[in-house]
Design a protein around this nucleic acid. Structure first.
Lengths: 341, 341
DNA sequence: AGACGACGTGGAAACGCTCCCACAGTCTGC
DNA sequence: GCAGACTGTGGGAGCGTTTCCACGTCGTCT
C-alpha cells in the first residue's frame, strides 16, 4: 500500500506537438479553436491530445493571457450561522447558474474572521481570479476596501453602507418593506409592529426605514415598544417577537424583516394563543422556501433573486471585459400573498 | 464616472529589484524568507516591496514551483437543498479552521449537476489546486473516479460506496446507530422503528445496518412496517414518520438517521398526540445545533466533526507532501443524552 | 503569365517567477 | 599566511503557454 513514487508527470504541449508531427504553435491553435488550422493538422492534434490525455496547464496559460477564467464569490460574514442560511445557497446557485454557459468557474471563499478575510484578500490580489462577487453585509467589514484596492473587477451583492464607489446589485429593500406596510394597512391593521434585522446591515436598515416611512405616510404611529431587533435567524426572530408581545400585547400585525425570523414569530404567536392572521397578521421578507411551508403559509416580500444574480454576473463580466464604469442595479420586489396576512 | 482605461499594471520582481538596487534573485530570496540574505539587502527589498505594493504573481510562481497553496473542497451533490444543510457548513468551518495556521487557502467548488461536476473536474485537472477534499455521498457520482484519475491528492469525506481505493475519513455510522439502538433497548423499548436515510448514501446505509444488527443482537424484531425511508431533510423526516405511524401505530421508539429528520419526526409525533419520550422515544443522529433547541431536546449520536476535519486535512497534507499511501480513518461517535430518549 | 492576397505553418520571444550555479569576498584552522 | 569552507550575490536557464512575425504555397484576378 505504501509508496512514495513521483506522481505521473502530465504531458505538455511539446509532447503533443511531437506526437502529432506539428509545431507547438499549431497545437496551441487547435486547443484554442483558432480557425487558421488545416483539417488534417487539427485531426492529428486532436488524436494526440486524446492519446496523451493532455490537459493544458492553467498556470502557464494564465501567465501569458493574464486571465484565469475563474471568479470568486466571497462570503465575508463573521456569523458562521449565516453561512448555512438558505439565502446564501440560493445566491450561490443563481451565480453558478448564470455562469453555466460560460467557461467561467466560480469558487467560493468563506471569510469568517480577520485571518480568513486576509487570506481571501491575498488570494484575490495574487491574481487567482478575474473578478470578485462580494457578499459583505456588515458595516465594519474592511474586505470591500481591500479588494477594491486590489484593482480587480469587483461587484457587491447588497448596497454598501459607507457609500463607497462600488458597483453593486441589491433588492429594493426600502420599497419592499413599504409595500409590506401598505399591505397591512390595507387589511385594516392599525397597531402594526416590526421585528427588524440587525441595524449594522444594509438590509436591516433599509427594510426598517421603508417600513417606518410607509407607516408614517399612512398616518399610523410606530412607538418604540412596537419595534424589536432581530438577527435574521429563526431563533432571533422568536426572541424578538416574544419581547414585542410583552411590550405591546395589543399588536394586530407585524412586519418581520426576514422569513426565517417570521417563522420564529409564527411559532411564538401560536404559543401565545394568538391566531394568524385573525388576531395578528404577519408579513415576512425574502420568500424563502420555508415561507411556503410554514403554518400558516407566509405572506412575504420576494426578491427577484434570479434577476439579481444575473445582473451581478453581467456587471462583473462587463468589468472584466474592461469597463470601469461604476454601475448599480436596484431590483424590484413584489408581494407574495399567502395566508398569514 | 465612465472610463475604459487600462487597469494599473502590477509591479514585477524586476521593478522591485531595480528600486532596491539588487538582483531579481535576491528579491526572490527575501520574498521567500531565505536565510541567505544580508540584513541591508533585506531591508532595501522590503522597503521597495512596500513602496511599490508588490504582490508576487501566483501564476508565475506556481508555474515553476508546481504548487498553488490552494486546496479545493468539492461538494458534489445534486440535491441543492443539502448545500444549505448546517452539516455542510460545519464541515466547511472545520476544514478552514484546521488550515487556518497554514498558508493553504480553501476554495469551495459546488458541483450540483453534470455540467458543474465537469467544470470542477476540469478545474482540478488544470492544476489550480494542490489537493482535493471531496464530499460526495451518492452511489452514482462519477467525480471521485474523475478526480482520482487526475492524479491529484484526494481525500474523501465519507466512505465511498464502491470501495475504490481512496483515502477517506468517516464517522463510525454503524457503531453509532448500534449505540442508539442499544440505548433504546436499555430504556425498555420493545417496538422500535426507524426512519432511515437515503439508501444510496453510505451514511444512510451504514446507519440502517448498524441499527438493524443491534436490534437483532438484542433479540428484537424489525418488521418492514417499522421502517420508513427519509431523505435527511426535515420535511422528508416528517413524511416518513407519518407513514411509520400509519403502518405501525404501536411504535414505542424510533431511531431517526439524522437530526433534521428527527425534528420533523418530533413535530409529527406531537401532532399525532403522542408524548416524547413518554409514548415514543426518539434518537437522532449528527448532534446538529437544532438538536439542542428542539422540543423536547433531542438525544442524538454525535460525530466528532472537529476531529474528522482535522484528520481530513492531515491526510490530505500528507498526500500533498508526497505520500501515496491510501489511508482511512473511522472516528468514534458518542451518544448525547437529552430529553427525547 | 505574373502579381498578389489568403492561408497554414513554424520559430522565437515573451509572461514573472524560482533556483542552480558560479563568483567574489570573508572567516576559520592550521 | 594560506588552503579551504562559508556567505551573500548576480547571471541565466527553464517552467508551459500564447502570440507575433516571417515564410512558403496555393488559388485568383487582371
Amino acid at each position: 500500500m505504501t509508496s512514495t513514487g513521483a506522481r505521473p508527470t502530465t504531458p505538455t504541449l511539446d509532447e503533443v506537438a511531437v506526437l502529432a508531427g506539428v509545431s507547438r504553435a499549431t497545437v496551441s491553435r487547435v486547443i484554442n479553436d483558432s480557425p487558421r488550422v488545416s483539417p488534417s493538422a487539427r485531426d492529428a492534434v486532436q488524436a494526440a491530445v486524446a492519446q496523451l490525455r493532455y490537459v493544458p496547464n492553467r498556470m502557464a496559460r494564465s501567465l501569458v493571457t493574464r486571465r484565469t477564467d475563474t471568479i470568486a464569490l466571497v462570503l465575508s460574514e463573521t456569523n458562521t450561522q449565516i453561512f448555512s442560511d438558505p439565502f446564501f445557497a440560493r445566491i450561490v446557485r443563481g451565480v453558478t447558474a448564470a455562469l453555466a454557459d460560460t467557461d467561467l468557474t466560480v469558487v467560493l471563499l468563506a471569510a469568517r474572521d480577520g485571518r480568513e478575510q486576509e487570506k481571501a484578500g491575498r488570494y484575490v490580489r495574487q491574481g487567482h481570479v478575474d473578478g470578485v462577487i462580494l457578499m459583505s453585509m456588515h458595516h465594519d467589514d474592511v474586505l470591500p476596501a481591500v479588494l477594491a484596492d486590489a484593482s480587480v473587477p469587483l461587484v457587491l451583492f447588497g448596497r454598501p453602507l459607507d457609500g463607497g464607489t462600488f458597483s453593486y446589485v441589491d433588492a429594493d429593500n426600502t420599497g419592499g418593506a413599504a409595500m409590506a406596510a401598505r399591505h397591512l394597512v390595507e387589511q385594516g391593521r392599525r397597531r402594526i409592529g416590526t421585528v427588524t434585522g440587525p441595524q449594522d446591515m444594509n438590509a436591516g436598515i433599509d427594510r426598517f426605514a421603508g417600513f417606518r416611512t410607509a407607516l408614517a405616510d399612512a398616518g399610523l404611529p410606530l412607538p418604540a415598544e412596537r419595534c424589536a431587533k432581530g438577527d435574521f435567524t429563526e431563533a432571533g426572530g422568536a426572541r424578538a417577537t416574544a419581547r414585542l408581545l410583552e411590550q405591546a400585547p395589543d399588536l394586530d400585525a407585524v412586519f418581520v424583516a426576514s422569513d426565517p425570523m417570521a417563522v420564529g414569530a409564527l411559532r411564538v404567536l401560536a404559543e401565545s394563543g394568538r391566531r394568524v392572521p385573525d388576531d395578528v397578521a404577519v408579513v415576512g421578507f425574502d420568500d424563502a422556501p420555508v415561507a411556503a411551508e410554514s403554518d400558516p403559509p407566509l405572506t412575504t416580500v420576494a426578491q427577484p433573486l434570479t434577476e439579481m444574480t444575473q445582473e451581478l454576473t453581467d456587471l462583473l463580466r462587463r468589468q472584466i471585459e474592461g469597463s470601469r464604469e461604476v454601475e448599480t442595479r436596484i431590483c424590484d420586489t413584489h408581494l407574495v400573498r399567502r395566508a398569514s396576512a
